Simulated scan of single mutants.
Amino acid sequence: MYIQEVAKRLNTTARTIRFYEEKGLLSPSKQANQYRTFTDEEVVRISTILALREFGVGIKEIKQLLDDQKQDRIHDYLNLQRAVLFEKWLEMKDMIHTLDQLLEGNNDPLISIKDLIALSKHLRKLKHLRQSWQDKWDFDAQASDYDQSLKMSGYRFNVHQDYETALEKVVDTMPLETGQTCLDIGIGTGNLGAKFLAKGVHIIGVDQSDNMLQACKQKHAEIEVRKGHFLALPMVDQQVDGIVSSYALHHITDEQKLLALAEMDRVLRPNGAICIVDLMFQDDAHRGEVMQYLKESGNAEAIHAIEDEFYANGATLVNWLQEHDYHVKTHIFNPILSMVYAFK
């Protein structure tokens, strides 16, 4: 098939096809008259390139994906691309919301410079907050033996004490039914989300670690996995009936936790529910009591573990949820592990 025929068939131009050839994405045969001819396989390759370009994938990345010749690589890259697009979309939403705040009820053409500067600072802060999280714990490296590492014994400070009890409590608490959709944020290898599969619930697992998502998919093929994180959930507004999260929220700062709650509220359908089980203190006073006890006990291991992460202030989470019209119930498993259940 000649280049003009291919271009017409794929609704593109000969110039575009030649461009991809120049970039090393195509190697068509050439006749004695230098006319390019394309096999059916090459036509499929061109259509794949065109599709990936529509999703914003760069030329360099497309070449790597096609040379790899593994379909899961394309899936993984598109999963990443979706996460990136959602982050950009949320940034645009933040900008529009900020402009609405500036213009709402303001009929004066001379908008206050003070207000303009204040809102622009707020917008920059919000953008920084969404992009500021760093994985200093290297969860990609932990994925292969993560489940084994949960079986801790003989340690003076066991962060996974009551782990299975807590997960079962989440499942028993969440009012999810067959056919409904539940989002598991920081799904890891799928230990919590998988417990809902027997109920016929569709589980979407979000995690920033590619290796964790792969491990989850290998264990539980029924779970839909998406690249993403607490601060930019890769889904549209009001998409899920329930949200769960276990042992993940303590990896983001207190300020980021409030943005994470706002993100959960954004994607949750009306009358939905949120259930978070995580390492947290009841309030600042409780944190002080626990830390003082550990210090007096000489338990440096526990103090280091707590200070290395961001155990939540449970009262702060509860207050935010109540201020946003949620009814909230809590359950304490042990001094550092609690569950927060919120519904409207």
Rank of each mutant, 00 (worst) to 15 (best):
F333A: 05
E177Y: 11
F333N: 04
E301Q: 15
D254I: 09
D68Q: 13
E41Q: 09
L123E: 06
F310W: 09
H286F: 05
G272Y: 01
Q161W: 10
V290Q: 11
F333K: 07
K195F: 10
K151N: 14
E177A: 10
A342R: 07
Y247T: 08
L26C: 10
Y77H: 15
M264Y: 02
A118R: 04
E224Y: 14
L50T: 04
F55P: 00
I185N: 00
A118Y: 13
C216T: 10
H304K: 11
V206I: 14
L85Q: 13
F333R: 02
M264H: 05
V244N: 04
E296M: 12
G179M: 03
R82S: 05
D278C: 12
Y311K: 01
D184S: 08
I204M: 01
A215Q: 01
A141P: 00
D210N: 15
L25N: 00
L279S: 00
G298H: 09
I17G: 00
I185A: 07
L25P: 12
A262M: 03
L150V: 08
R53H: 01
S149V: 13
Q31D: 15
P175G: 11
V171I: 14
K93Y: 11
P270Y: 04
G200M: 09
T39Q: 14
S29L: 09
T13P: 03
K136T: 12
E104Y: 10
C182L: 15
P270W: 01
M92P: 09
R9N: 06
A14Y: 00
W89F: 15
K23E: 13
L123M: 15
N79T: 02
R82V: 05
R36F: 06
Y35P: 02
A312R: 00
H229M: 12
K23L: 05
L103G: 07
L176M: 15
G24C: 02
L231V: 01
L337M: 09
A302Y: 05
Q101A: 14
E263V: 08
I303F: 04
Q214R: 12
F38I: 11
R266A: 06
K63P: 01
G105R: 11
D162K: 10
V43M: 15
P234W: 04
A7P: 03
G154T: 12
H160C: 06
Q31S: 09
D207G: 10
L99R: 02
C275D: 01
D135P: 01
F38H: 02
E104F: 13
N211H: 15
K169I: 07
R9I: 00
I276H: 09
D210Q: 14
T98P: 04
E54P: 00
A232N: 04
R45P: 07
Y326K: 06
L25V: 10
K121H: 11
L192Y: 07
Q81C: 02
T173A: 15
R156K: 11
V277N: 03
D76G: 08
D135M: 08
T48G: 05
T173L: 08
L52W: 00
G242C: 04
S149R: 15
S27G: 14
G193T: 06
L116Y: 13
M92D: 15
E224L: 10
S149P: 03
A166I: 05
